[in-house]
Amino acid sequence: MHVLLGVGGSDLSYQALDETIERAREAGDEVTVAVFDGHETDAGGDEVQERVRERLDETGFEAEIRRLSGDPGSRLVDVAESEGFDRIVLGSGERSTLGKIQLGSIAEFVLLNAQTPVTLIR
């Protein structure tokens, strides 16, 4: 299976990276990490990409890293569709001060619009 993982720099997006690596190892999945910036945290795309690179190096897992420009949600859906990915993986679902889970706008868009199955890590 070829998995497209979106990483925007939130804590949950790095957790999704770790879980995707672990799962891909067991299942023999191929993974492409799509890095986007400026939406979830103050971290720019370069910083996010750097951290993804480090994480991949630490775990010795090989995956293509790719930068997405433009609206992250629609770009993820686009790329997954036009390049024949089997699944999109995303981390989302921050908790409010009171403990309510709130999906980010990117995850919401992807869940509603993707033509592939979507795995939400939260």
Partner: peptide, 20 residues
């Protein structure tokens, strides 16, 4: 339940109420 609260398991309820 709505948006993940109240939590289902007793230990999670206790942790959540500690904050509340």
């Amino acid at each position: 339940r709505a948006q993940g609260i109240p939590p289902a398991r007793e230990t999670a309820i206790e942790r959540w109420l500690e904050n509340i």
